[in-house]
Design a protein around this nucleic acid. Sequence first.
DNA 1: TCGTTTTAGAGAGCACCGCTCTCGACGGCC
DNA 2: GGCCGTCGAGAGCGGTGCTCTCTAAAACGA
Lengths: 252, 252
Amino acid sequence: MVVAPAGHCQERCSLLLHLLSRSAIIDAMTATPRQRARAQTIEDVKRIAREQLAREGSAALSLRAIARELGIVSSAVYRYVPSRDELLTMLIIDAYNSLGDAVAAAEAACPRADLAGRWRAIGVAVRTWSVTRPSEYALVYGSPVPGYHAPVERTGEPGTRVSMLVMALLADIQRDRPQVAVAGPLGGDFAVLRDFLGLAIGDDLLARGFLAFSALFGVISFELHGQYVGSLTDYEAHFTHQLDSLAVLLGV
Amino acid sequence: MVVAPAGHCQERCSLLLHLLSRSAIIDAMTATPRQRARAQTIEDVKRIAREQLAREGSAALSLRAIARELGIVSSAVYRYVPSRDELLTMLIIDAYNSLGDAVAAAEAACPRADLAGRWRAIGVAVRTWSVTRPSEYALVYGSPVPGYHAPVERTGEPGTRVSMLVMALLADIQRDRPQVAVAGPLGGDFAVLRDFLGLAIGDDLLARGFLAFSALFGVISFELHGQYVGSLTDYEAHFTHQLDSLAVLLGV
DNA sequence: TCGTTTTAGAGAGCACCGCTCTCGACGGCC
DNA sequence: GGCCGTCGAGAGCGGTGCTCTCTAAAACGA
């Protein structure tokens, strides 16, 4: 749950931006044909990379194979992508934004007053996105691909969009119930975090929020990484049940 | 939480076996000097592989680099390890067993009647093992290394040792409180699981156990993969707090 | 319209990787 | 002491990421 250096307004702006496709933005802003073709080729590289990722996993992602599939010699692909690691970083950022878009849209469709519905919408949207794109989920929530961790200064903001939605939900939950302060070693972290977010969330609820958030992705990770194989068969039912348990934990 | 095809007795036997080092077993059983040297070299290969894993991550694990470090030519290492994937599988099995040993030892040190203490011991042992061996944690609980998933028929049993300890704990918890049945889509999976384990654990408690287990690893994964960077600083305090929250969820 | 500049792509090449094959040599075993 | 199994060396195959240089074409400015 990385905290974004952005407030609500910026959050909404970036959401609107991401609803448009990236190439459409470039088309509108700069019209030179070369730049359009270049942006299109970069999109092609990323699309083929995502297909390779889904087929064979992150370690098998090969710029030479992408070049072959593009009908280009291997060195030419470096005109569009600086390096393999940089391509992975781009894919990670795209994946974070794709997840953020999906979750934000699902959550926005709920009435603001329906706190339980918003939590459930967030959870279901995260899982739906994850099971339909397991390779991209592994990219962002699995172990860092080669031993390199994506540069946090670039993946940070897109990586916080889901957690920001949860934080806003926590603030709305807090309004409906009395403040309960927990005295403990977490007080310091949580006070800083509360000031930073500008949201009124008590320590107890904040801790519950972190647990619910972590458990949400823990259940999905176990499902996708095969940790439930042999003991569960109906993953969706299990997930829904646990999501409701976490709603109880959050008090909605 | 994969279920092992083994009962309690086998569980205990394999535990005892793993308490001895692998090479010690081979020394005792077959004394021919060649086999001893061979076993020692295999151990060396795995040790260097673990060091490389910790230094540069799983993708950078290279048999040629291992050979260089061992002072032999690259092809010679194939006398001891069939392939890179096979080496990874061996490391995964070792990691599962190492974690299983650590957690079992910590849990066994608690009085049987101290249910909360046993849960806490399991959780703390898992986290302690994980933060001291982040690369091995990523190997088994991160995304599958290259796109290849470890063969479940070989990693299955060692991978269940922690979950079996949790299951035994759940059964002990169940004895202290009334059976509460949940009617739901999980009933089928849980009934099969209960029959298989031979443990009396109600559906409700079983579901809570799965959630606590998943959340435990979810929190650790987020900590190790940098998902808390920017919002938490005292990871250990946070983990301990959430572990206690999960104890409440389990009713201990 | 024409010359200049920018840019995409080709090709060769370097160092590394996993893995396979053959061959010589050394050490344990009868 | 001779035999045979094993171990290590070496060459080699196809693959990878990445860099360099060069050519040709496209876009741009006068």
